[in-house]
Design a protein around this nucleic acid. Structure first.
Lengths: 122, 122, 122, 122
DNA sequence: GTGGTCTAGACCACC
DNA sequence: GTGGTCTAGACCACA
């Protein structure tokens, strides 16, 4: 796993976990890697992973059983998707549209770029 | 002026100035507010405004006449638009599209939201 | 049985057993569930139950006959009540009163809440 | 400042700050000590203080201005008192009353203990 | 100066 | 084994 430098590592780990959940690779109530294991695997300090887990727990996406580990929460997929969607619509989109307007980029242009992106990611 | 906490203030000021230029409110060669005046008006430290002006000058969007002040540069609109566009396509869009995919938001959904946004901003 | 996360599970189990004893549901010299059985019933690790039983035995509330099981001790009710009372007065109450003072809750308010609680628990 | 060992230090610091706010010693919009300063004063690691500030910010009790510091939030007194009160009524009180019942302690007994406590804290 | 992040390593309670 | 807390110290961006 390699990290971008423009965002905190613990947030990028959170995005990774949310992706695992949203794509169904980590189903509901499944145990997720222990803090130590994940830290070793992605080569970061355990404290950094713990910070990620703390936040995801506060968001209701994962939960924790004492001495056992962390688990994917009930309805984590729905919750995570809802949270992400709200964030997206409330804070990303307005900025997106405003920028599009400023740089004179139409919806059609955006559609074109989207198709290019889709092709490249296949 | 109120600032988001997820981006440096000096960058948000830069965006504001670019918006003024792109929308034509500050035309080419027009004097822009002095560092001190702008700092007072938007209630930030003059150092912060200076940082904004320095960067915009480095980008060729504004220029400065010693002892007189800062001015909108020649072809500032074109330059600013080109810079914004590059930024947008290279760094904003990919993450945008990835998020859209994760939260199951289609281009059609986006179009709908765009129309809602357009109506509200009128 | 579901556990709060703000206290060790083995202590919550101890509270449960003490409650059984104080309310007379488990009378003196009666055999209590085996470690294994209780562990299965409340879905915790047997080690955790063992820890509870060890402590209760050390407190003189239960005793154990090798190969047979654990039993409610002689005068377990009196002992348990005395221990709980000491704990309560020495460590719970001071913090309680301090909090009451901070949130501006009077003895009269407390009395009111007590009546509400009594009604609901009937 | 000396800390009990039965609760995390960062939570005890939070309680201290809430007390400062509730008693009016730190009024609304007042700057609170910087992370470093408070850490030096109470002789803990800055990370520990930061943890406290993070939580209080999440609770809406303090807020932060980039590069300047942390401040007592708007209506922090009301919010803090409300949060504390909810916690108290929902989680402390039921346990309190249950324990009182188990150890055969009446409201009158409690009142007596309260008066003793009040005298001692003067 | 301010906070934010990260690492390294320690100790602890708990399961 | 698990997580939770704390320290020490570093580096960074920002105001």
């Amino acid at each position: 796993m390699d990290f971008r430098s423009d965002q905190a590592i613990y947030l990028q780990i959170a995005d990774f976990i949310i992706e695992m959940i949203l794509t169904g690779k980590w189903p509901e109530d499944e145990k997720i890697p222990s803090i130590r294991d994940l830290a070793v695997e992605i080569e970061v300090n355990p404290n950094t992973v713990m910070r990620t887990y703390n936040q995801l727990q506060a968001d209701g996406i994962i939960y924790n059983r004492r001495g056992i580990g962390y688990f994917v929460g009930e309805q984590a997929r729905e919750n995570a998707r809802a949270i992400k969607k709200q964030e997206f619509i409330n804070s990303d989109l307005p900025r997106l549209f405003k920028t599009m307007h400023l740089i004179d980029l139409s919806l059609d242009d955006l559609e074109l770029l989207y198709r290019q992106y889709s092709e490249n990611s296949n």
